[in-house]
Write a protein that binds this DNA or RNA. Structure first.
Lengths: 204, 204
DNA sequence: AAATATACTAAACACTGTTCATAAAAATCA
DNA sequence: TGATTTTTATGAACAGTGTTTAGTATATTT
């Protein structure tokens, strides 16, 4: 049954082709402006064909969503080398912020957009996002054990740290700082200062 | 020329009619699911008529956007009574979070969505949003003056506080806590705990 | 070679925001 | 009053969206 194997490989190849095209277009123009017909044109297939490989548009972008988490996970890896846990926590925040600024579309899909989670997100409890959060949890726990940060519940602290970092970059990405008085000139600079102030308070 | 006056009143009335319908539908079903045709159906006019009173969909929702800020401003008013500035800062945070949880669609439009700002946001430097941020700035400054919080640049601290609060509620609204391990049961509870931890660090 | 299973697509459905020529109504002028 | 101009409203269309379906080629199996 080698033919059946090849057929399955072909099927996977065409799925990969769709994802590759979708990823390319998505990174060029974002979610909303990447239509099924755009992807179909790009891979030179009919729009209907795409629906033979994916149930809906969101299913395609959930895979890209996971790609984003893989990328973030990758950028977190070098941080494991940092011995001092508080320093590692600080670096974790900086890396998170840089990831968001360098990959705003990925970040949007992963943390801001409503779209590509529905029932999908629930199907796998231990997805890539959980891994990243676990890394944060572990680091916070270590900081607590070594009494490097203000004591408190590890979950609460992790949520606090994540919320701060997310708020910072998502307000920046959605240009809400601009629309206020602040950050008109030195855009990225104030983010770093806020990060430093936040960590200083945490470590106090 | 009383006729011309009446005509202008009529015109404003029809604008208000459109806004009222748009607001109603928006609060029922959100921005994306409120179409021009929905509004037209509701007010029993043709879709094209709406474009005689508003240049585009976003112009309608920018007014709703401002309504949201007026509402937030209103909820901030009682806080002026609070004498202790740190207490006021804490209450400011809680009020902000409660506003977001009680009016998720308004909050979305005001702080999360990409849509109804473009050039529009820039036209009036001193809009409702600036007022709210100014309130935060003043409160932070007072806390600094009274040495109630960790010293630092007032702008940086205000951004830090706002980012934290925004991150908290926007991750909640977009259900990113659920998709991780945390907050599956006691949803709103962890927000309050995080808020308390954040303020405790700030005041330390 | 005939029957079956697979892969693909043109066309349509039900939407979206937006524009434009045309028709109806109201106000102004002769 | 009747004719003219201005204001107001709309049907129909444009170009786009995600998605479904019926029908057509192609490839595999019998």
């Amino acid at each position: 049954m080698a033919i059946k194997d090849r057929k399955e490989r072909d099927k996977l190849d065409r799925q990969k082709l769709i994802i590759a095209s979708a990823t390319k277009l998505f990174l060029e123009q974002g979610y909303d402006k990447t239509s099924i017909r755009n992807i179909a044109d790009d891979i030179e297939y009919s729009p209907a064909t795409i629906y033979l490989y994916f149930k809906e548009k969101d299913e395609i972008f959930f895979i890209i969503h996971e790609q984003g988490f893989a990328l973030l996970h990758q950028e977190f890896q070098p941080l494991l080398e940092i011995a001092n846990s508080l320093e590692r926590l600080h670096a974790l925040g900086s890396t998170y912020i840089n990831f968001a600024l360098n990959n705003p579309d990925y970040y949007d899909l992963m943390f801001i957009m409503r779209a590509p989670l529905g029932q999908i997100a629930c199907h796998d409890k231990w997805d890539a996002g959980d891994h990243a959060f676990q890394f944060l949890l572990n680091t916070v726990q270590e900081c607590l054990d070594q009494k490097l940060i203000v004591p408190g519940d590890v979950n609460v602290i992790a949520v606090t740290v994540w919320s701060f970092a997310h708020g910072l970059v998502s307000l920046h990405i959605r240009e809400r700082f601009k629309s206020m008085g602040i950050g008109s000139d030195s855009d990225g600079e104030i983010l770093k200062h806020a990060m430093n102030y936040f960590i200083k308070n945490l470590a106090h």
